[in-house]
Simulated scan of single mutants.
Amino acid sequence: MAAVIPSRITALTKLRCSIFGTSYNPTGLRTGAKYLRARLRGPSMVKYYPPVINIAQLARKYPELELVDEVEEQRWQDVEDRKKRGKGAPKKAKSKADSRRVARKR
């Protein structure tokens, strides 16, 4: 039985990699190719969970149903209550002279 020359084995491995679309890695370094070739998990996870029903989108799409988003109504009520107590968001400056930064620099 005749021994095969190592250069022939190397050439055969390179040819095999080019034919089958795999990466040529003669030293056996860790490349992560196994994980890059793996099927993505995201699409199957998205299919597993049922779609979330959004009341606000349904109310905009079908105004004749007169749906009320109770969570959004409660949020608006909380914002109004905070504004009455003086805890709301500050008013936006209409011009550069109205901004707090200009007043601070003086």
Rank of each mutant, 00 (worst) to 15 (best):
G32Q: 05
E64Q: 15
R106K: 15
K47Y: 04
M45I: 08
L58I: 10
R60H: 11
R16T: 11
V46C: 03
E70R: 13
D81Y: 01
G32L: 05
V52A: 13
I55W: 07
Y35G: 11
V79I: 15
Y48N: 12
G86W: 02
A3S: 13
R106G: 12
I55M: 14
S18F: 06
K96V: 11
S44Y: 07
L15N: 05
D98N: 09
R101F: 12
G42I: 11
R106P: 02
N54G: 03
I53Q: 11
Q74W: 08
T13W: 02
Y35R: 14
L15T: 09
W76H: 09
I5C: 07
R75H: 06
A38W: 02
R39Y: 02
D78Y: 02
A33S: 13
K92F: 02
D78M: 10
G21E: 06
E80S: 04
K14S: 06
R16F: 12
A59Q: 13
V46L: 15
Y24C: 01
D81I: 01
P26Y: 03
F20W: 03
G21I: 00
D98T: 00
L65K: 11
L58R: 13
L65V: 06
R82A: 07
R104S: 09
L12H: 04
K91E: 09
T31E: 11
R75L: 09
P6N: 11
P63R: 08
V79C: 02
L15D: 06
E70Q: 13
A103P: 00
R75C: 04
P43S: 10
T31W: 01
T10D: 15
E73Q: 14
D98S: 10
I53L: 14
Q77C: 02
L58K: 10
M45H: 10
L58E: 13
S7H: 08
I9K: 10
K14P: 00
A33R: 11
E80T: 01
R101Y: 07
P63I: 06
T13H: 07
L65N: 02
L29N: 08
K105M: 13
E80N: 05
F20T: 15
R104H: 07
L12F: 10
P43G: 07
K34F: 08
S44R: 15
T10M: 10
V52M: 12
P6S: 12
P90V: 03
G86V: 01
G21C: 02
E66C: 09
V79A: 13
E70G: 01
K34T: 12
K47L: 14
Q77M: 08
T22R: 04
R85M: 07
L36I: 04
T27S: 08
P63Q: 10
F20R: 05
S7Y: 06
R104F: 09
S7V: 11
Q74A: 15
L40M: 07
A56N: 13
V52C: 07
L40W: 02
A103N: 03
K83D: 05
K91W: 00
V4K: 09
